[in-house]
Amino acid sequence: MPVTNPWLAGPAPTARLDPERLGERILNLLSSQNMCVLATAGPDGPLATPVRYFHLDFAVMFTAAATSPKMRNIAADPRVSVGVFAPLVGQASSRGAQLFGRARVLHEGDADFAHWWPAVRWQSDHAERGRSLDEPPSGPLVVIEADRIVYTEHWLRRDGYAPRQFWRRAPR
């Protein structure tokens, strides 16, 4: 039987991408998608929430109602995982990332808020909802700077690289 992508058959390669190339692939994924699944832990157990995100480098961010279950969970335990993935058409198109880090909740007066806020494209949401573009949202901004990322892309197998790659933030 003919195989569409014969490079998917057999054992996966184990070669690692150099950090710069891996970082570029991760940033491409983060830039080309806008939905993620945020995983938090709370008193009722794990919670996986679809969230529209924005990114700046290897950080994802989103706004949320301060009283939402995900915000209550983050307040209790800021350790989170974020899954970002491209639409799957077949095994060859499999591409996604799991980001691991701590969520920080920032408010307009906080020192770091001005650094992150310009990356949030809130204007399109306001236009869609008929809200004034002169009044940005006032809810908190959640920022998750990835400490580590597990990146999966099966297309890497074509070039002899492992489909699962591991990224770590350089020590600060």
Rank of each mutant, 00 (worst) to 15 (best):
P13S: 04
A111D: 12
L30W: 06
R104S: 10
F100V: 08
W167H: 01
I26Y: 02
I26G: 01
L156G: 01
Q165L: 01
P43L: 09
G160H: 03
F113E: 03
D57P: 07
P2I: 11
S68C: 08
I144S: 03
P137V: 09
A162L: 02
R79K: 12
G23R: 01
L99C: 05
H154F: 14
R157G: 00
A76H: 10
D134C: 08
G10M: 09
R16H: 09
A92L: 03
V89H: 12
E145V: 06
G83S: 15
T4I: 14
P13N: 04
A64Q: 05
D112G: 07
P6L: 11
W7K: 07
V37T: 14
P140C: 01
V80T: 03
S132T: 11
P171N: 13
Y151E: 01
G96I: 00
P171M: 13
L27T: 07
P13Y: 00
A97H: 01
S32P: 07
G130C: 06
A75P: 11
P6E: 09
V80L: 04
V60K: 02
G160Y: 03
A48M: 13
R72E: 15
R168A: 13
A41Y: 13
P11G: 12
R131C: 07
R164H: 02
I149G: 00
Q98L: 12
A119Y: 08
N73I: 00
V37I: 11
G23W: 02
F62C: 04
S81G: 14
L47M: 07
L38M: 10
L141S: 00
L27P: 06
Q165Y: 00
P118F: 10
R131F: 15
N34M: 10
A103P: 05
L27H: 10
D159I: 02
V60G: 01
Q91G: 10
S138F: 06
H126W: 07
F85G: 14
R148E: 10
D110E: 02
D125W: 12
P171E: 14
R172M: 08
T40W: 10
G10P: 11
W122R: 04
D159C: 07
R157Q: 11
E108F: 05
S81R: 07
W122G: 01
